[in-house]
Design a binder for these strands. Structure first.
Length: 195
DNA sequence: CTTTTGATCGTCT
DNA sequence: GACGATCAAAAGC
């Protein structure tokens, strides 16, 4: 593993927290990450990697510091940062962020009427603002990801969104008070639970 | 404001 | 053949 990716290896929830506040650049757009969701490879029933490596998930099982981009619901792209040691299969879904550069281009991609705080709110919206799609799957994040100096101060956590398995594992993390964080929605497929 | 519903297709069973 | 790590517009309050 290259040295720059060392911060992406460690306990899964800890790595997820380290990504909050990070800046991700792609082309002329930069997003400051405000909300993430962690998935822990074959151990995690909610993860795409739960059933092992497939054609879709093979980059999750590669070295950390690369993008795992998947096609969702027949119309959206969502982006993850591959984390953990090579072969582990863990990744962190980028759920929301603040567009801090290239806002004009992001608005062109998302729609002229979309308010700034909504440009990258939601994983598919974040990916669209950055212009990520199939062609970005497996992309190295070296020189594209700037991690913050320390762990963000006010991090909150709760159940993951949209998953029907292990929905109550509190591995969604977000920065307190950020207007770009998407409102929590439990999956309609998840069993009734504690929240 | 919240809830409901349609869009749309790759992936795995 | 069913389902899904989603979204936005429409409809309900």
């Amino acid at each position: 593993m290259p040295g720059w990716a060392e911060a992406l290896v460690g306990p899964v929830p800890e790595v997820a927290r380290r990504l909050l506040g990070a800046r991700l650049h792609h082309g002329d757009v930069t997003v400051r990450i405000t909300e993430v969701e962690a998935y822990d490879g074959p151990n995690d029933p909610a993860s795409h990697a739960y059933r092992g490596s497939t054609a879709r998930t093979e980059v999750m099982f590669g070295p950390p510091g690369h993008l795992y981009v998947y096609f969702s619901y027949g119309m959206h792209w969502c982006a993850n940062v591959v984390t953990g040691e090579d072969g582990r299969g863990s990744a962190v879904l980028l759920r929301a962020g603040e567009v801090v550069a290239g806002i004009e281009l992001a608005r062109t991609r998302r729609g002229a009427k979309v308010p700034d705080v909504r440009l990258a709110r939601g994983p598919a919206n974040l990916a669209q603002s950055l212009g990520l799609d199939r062609s970005s799957n497996g992309l190295s994040l070296e020189d594209r990801l700037d991690l913050p100096a320390g762990v963000a101060a006010s991090v909150l956590s709760g159940p993951r969104v949209g998953v029907s398995q292990a929905a109550d594992v509190p591995w969604r993390f977000w920065l307190a008070g950020e207007p770009t964080v998407s409102a929590y929605r439990r999956s309609p497929r998840a069993p009734a639970g504690s929240r």
